[in-house]
Amino acid sequence: MLNRIINSAKVAQIVCQGFLGVVLMAVAFQAAADVSLNTTVQKVESYLAEDGLRKTRLVPALEIIPGDELKYIVEYTNIGNTAVDKGSVVITDPIPADTIYLSGTAFGSGTEISFSADGGKAFSSERNLQVERNGEVVIARPADYTTIRWEFGPVLEPGQKGYVSFNVVLK
């Protein structure tokens, strides 16, 4: 209840104070929110290792051109002093425009991962997600995916953090 009140107050500040409210919002958000959320993107670089094998590594996404593989990492942390309810943390991430999800790359420890091919209206597992193509209902291809959803099962205790990730290729 306390969180709900604080968040309502934050919205009121934005409405009343305009641009200054945005600044204040950030301050209030840090102080009052129970959970923080952050996302980053890195480039998956292929390189020839000393053992002669071609391997991949993550590098800063400074130069990105069509065909590059990217890894998005979403971090969440319970920064409050109250546990977040079991099974209530749901992360929803629309796959960025101009990218295609790379099959099998969605990851999230302790989460149930599902996908949508209709902009987030309906979700299903990667294996069972269906779309209609040429009048037939078929298993969706990664290029059909529009949204990924992670549902974190356990309680998120105060101070506990987790992350989810997925890879795409830039069209």
């Binding site: 209840m1 969180n3 129970d34 959970v35 959320l37 996302t39 993107v41 998005y72 979403v74 969440y76 109250t82 546990a83 977040v84 309810d85 209530s88 943390v89 749901v90 992360i91 929803t92 991430d93 629309p94 960025p96 998120l156």
Partner: peptide
């Protein structure tokens, strides 16, 4: 990439 997180407390 825009991501959202929903959660519940109590």
């Amino acid at each position: 990439n825009s991501v959202t997180l929903d959660y519940q407390v109590n």
